[in-house]
Structure formats: structure tokens, C-alpha cells
Computed example of a mutant assay.
Amino acid sequence: MAVKVLVVDDSSFFRRRVSEIINQDPMLTVIDTAQNGREAVDKALALRPDVITMDIEMPVMDGISAVREIMAKCPIPILMFSSLTHEGAKATLDALDAGALDFLPKKFEDIARDKDEAVRLLQQRVKEISRKRFLMGASARPKAPEPAARSPLVGSLPRPGDRQVEPPRIVPVAAFKRSGKTYQLVAIGTSTGGPVALQNVLTKLPGDFPHPILLIQHMPATFTAAFAARLNGLCQIGVKEAEDGDVLKPGHAYLAPGGKQMLLEGRGVGARIRIVDGNDKVNYKPCVDITFASAAKTYADKVLAIVLTGMGADGRDGARLLKEQGSTIWAQDEASCVVYGMPQAVAKAGIATESLPLDRVAQRILVELGR
């Protein structure tokens, strides 16, 4: 059965354009459109679509208010369309706080390098977040199930030819125990669903957190400064957009700037951040693999690396390099991910040693560090 989509935008041209793209995929179908947030809420309640695409700035009721009301009355996966401006970034982050699961730039030329790739990406995002509709009946945010529960998301069953590896342990909270390893750095990589996931983890860490933290979030260049500022205002630790030459300090998190690559140079206490343009052939800027690989060279076995929700497999190769050096890799569990792509990649490769629900990641970090 095709995924049913409600398209919301005050521009008739954009509604038609998005609808045409969605309807090109036989697995997707636009069941209706709305031209403002009020209509969106009414049609969401009446039609119960599987996914909603939502503009932010609209008459009568804006997209953020519409997201908030839909999540309160009938939670549905929502994909926001955003302008790539500082104000657009702040509004998009507000929409994610309100319950939206993901966002894309409103200008399609900003989504990808060519039209066909942009079309595929939009269709893929809609299909990916639609899988969360099974878990959104009770609340806007999916909650981790009891340990014995199984997620209905696609992709958890082995396929013929898959290499069998030892799956990461799903560790009950009561069983959290410190491994005794020594760390000097925490590194977290994420993509789709990452802004909310990072906020969930970082706001639970104390101001005297003993190590620096690197954050690699797939995000446009105009968004990372606003996101870092938001996290800094919410967290006890300091959070900033990373700059070239930053010296890593305990109790501080450094968010890789969009459109750039974040590397490390030096060792231990004297390590510094290098921000470079990087190779244009790399799919992601910033790229989790690149930062993780640099951390492996700089800190060897002293890294605690965590791969959170996200589409694709970025982070798997870098995590493998970290593990080869003796560092520790954890992954978010399937049930609490918006998209179980990046964590699944490290789990299926046998790289992650533990699978953790999002709400327990911060607690597990603190136990591991002896806090």
C-alpha cells in the first residue's frame, strides 16, 4: 500500500511541484493539499495521512503552530521545508522541537547536485520517516519499548547473503556498568533526527563533564551556528560551532560547521580542531567518517564514539578505524531512532558493542566515565 502524503504550503506552485515529485514514486501518493496551518490540522485529523510535508511561514496559522497542534491531537511524521537562512534555521529547529521529524531546504537546488538526485532524496526522506507512523500513536516522540519488544520498522531481519556478525548488546539500565577504560574524547555522529537526539543527550550532561565532545550532525552551513547557540543555551556544558584552531577543553562540545570537514591535530590535552573545505566528492559535509577517522589517529583507544539516528551509513568506516585502535563504539537502538540507518550500519558490521535507547544514552555515558 502506498504511503499517503498531505502536502502543506501557501504557494500553489510549490504544492504542485512537491505533489508531482511525490506521485512519481509508486510507493507514495498525495491524498490532498493544504494552503495554511489551519487547513493542515483539519485535514490531518480528517484524512490521517501517513506523512505531512509542511512549510513554515504561512497565513492563518504558521507551520510550527500546526506541527504542535497535530502532534497533540494525532501524531503524524512531518517533514519540514525550510529556507537556508539564519532565521529559517531557528524556525526549523523550533519545528523539530514541536515534533517534526526532519527537514529539507525549500530550494531544491540546495538539496542535491542535480534535479534527479533532489527528486530521489525527497522521495526517500518521505518513505523513511513514514516508517515511524507505527510508533506515533501515543505521542509525538517515539519512546523506547520494553527490552523484549520488537520495533515494526523495516530492515531488522537478515537477508540472504548478509554476513552474520555478533549484534550489539541491548543493555538494561540496571545493568549499566563501567568498563574501566580510560577516555580523553567523546564523539557523536548523527543525521536525520539528530537535532532532537543531540539535545536529549547533551542537556543531561553536567557542566563539569570531564572530556571534550565532538558533534557531527548532517546539517546545512546556515543551520549549525543557530543549532550550536540553541544547545549552548539549553545545556550545562558549553556548546559552540567549531572553528579552526579551537583547543579542545573538557566540558565543551564542538559542533562541526555545515559545508566543512572537522579534523583534529595534535594529541591529548593539546589537540586542536582543524576546519577544512574537504573533497567535493564526499557526500556529506560534515562527514562522520572523516571526523571519526581523524579522532582515531589523534586519540587511538581513548575515544568513546556514539552513532545516533540517521539515514545512510556515514560513520561506519570511521567507527571501524576507531575500533581497530581499541576505542569504544555504541549505537542508538532501532526503536528510538527516527531513521535506523547509521546506527544499523555499525551494528550490522559488528562494530558497536552496545545498543542504547536514546533516553538512556547520557546516563550510560556518565556511568562509563565513572560520574
Rank of each mutant, 00 (worst) to 15 (best):
V5S: 01
V7P: 00
V8Y: 06
D10H: 11
S11E: 05
S12N: 09
R15A: 04
E20P: 00
I21W: 12
D25A: 00
M27Q: 15
L28E: 13
I31D: 08
I31L: 14
D32P: 01
R38G: 11
V41S: 12
A44Q: 11
R48W: 07
R48N: 15
P49A: 13
P49Y: 11
I52C: 05
I56F: 03
P59E: 11
M61D: 12
M61K: 15
I64W: 09
S65Q: 15
R68N: 15
C74L: 12
I76H: 03
M80L: 07
T85K: 09
K90T: 13
K90W: 07
T92G: 09
L96Y: 08
A100Q: 01
A100C: 04
L101W: 05
D102N: 13
D102W: 01
L104D: 03
P105A: 09
K106W: 09
K106Y: 06
K106G: 12
K107H: 10
K107L: 07
K115N: 05
K115A: 13
A118C: 07
V119I: 15
V119S: 03
Q123A: 12
E128H: 13
I129V: 13
S130Q: 05
R131Q: 14
K132A: 12
K132V: 11
F134C: 01
F134Q: 13
L135Q: 14
L135C: 05
S139L: 04
P142C: 06
K143I: 07
R150V: 14
P152L: 00
P152K: 02
L153H: 09
L157V: 13
P160Y: 04
G161A: 01
V165R: 12
P168A: 05
P168V: 08
P168C: 04
P172I: 03
A174G: 12
K177G: 02
Y183H: 08
T192W: 06
P195D: 05
A197S: 14
A197T: 05
L198K: 01
Q199C: 09
N200H: 14
K204N: 13
P206K: 04
D208F: 01
P210T: 10
L215T: 11
L215K: 11
A221G: 09
A221S: 12
T224E: 11
A228I: 06
G233Y: 04
Q236C: 05
G238L: 08
G238R: 12
K240C: 10
K240W: 02
D246L: 05
P257N: 01
G259E: 07
Q261M: 10
E265W: 04
G268P: 05
I273T: 02
D289G: 08
A295D: 08
A296G: 11
A300N: 13
L308T: 01
T309K: 00
T309V: 12
M311A: 14
M311C: 10
G312H: 01
A313D: 13
D314I: 01
A319R: 00
R320L: 11
L321Y: 09
L321M: 13
L322F: 08
E324R: 12
G326Q: 08
Q332C: 07
D333C: 04
E334N: 04
E334H: 05
A335F: 00
V338P: 06
G341I: 05
P343R: 08
V346C: 00
A352H: 06
L356R: 04
P357N: 10
P357V: 06
V361C: 07
I365V: 15
L366T: 14
G370L: 03
